[in-house]
Amino acid sequence: MINFGYTLNKSGAINLVEADLSLYNDLMKKVPSFARCIGCGGCAATCAARQHTDFSVLKCNMLIRRGEYDTLSKELNKCMLCGKCSLVCPRNVNTRAMIIQARLLVNSFSKR
């Protein structure tokens, strides 16, 4: 390789077409109410962890739908499972079940 004195950045693009959505599909089976989420962000507004750090159920939701599992695993562990989000959710999404099942799935995926 010729050294030009500079390099190209690694691409940060998210390829939704080729994303691995296996965890998303598994989670959808385990927690069907996950499908009801409209992304209103009510969960993020009330989140106890969000007062300390950049975390929300909505964000986890996005990561799962995009297949970004590496980031997801770190995000999920920030949740304290306090349950405020499930009480404010206007769509009755079982948010805590979603977090717990996603944790378990991420764990089993990383072992695979």
């Binding site: 106890a48 007062q51 300390h52 304290m80 499972l81 306090c82 349950g83 805590r96 717990i100």
Partner: peptide
């Protein structure tokens, strides 16, 4: 301002 969960919900779920 910044509440921390007491940990009981996590304990009940086995974490």
């Amino acid at each position: 301002d910044k509440s921390i969960c007491c940990g009981r919900p996590l304990k009940q779920q086995g974490f």
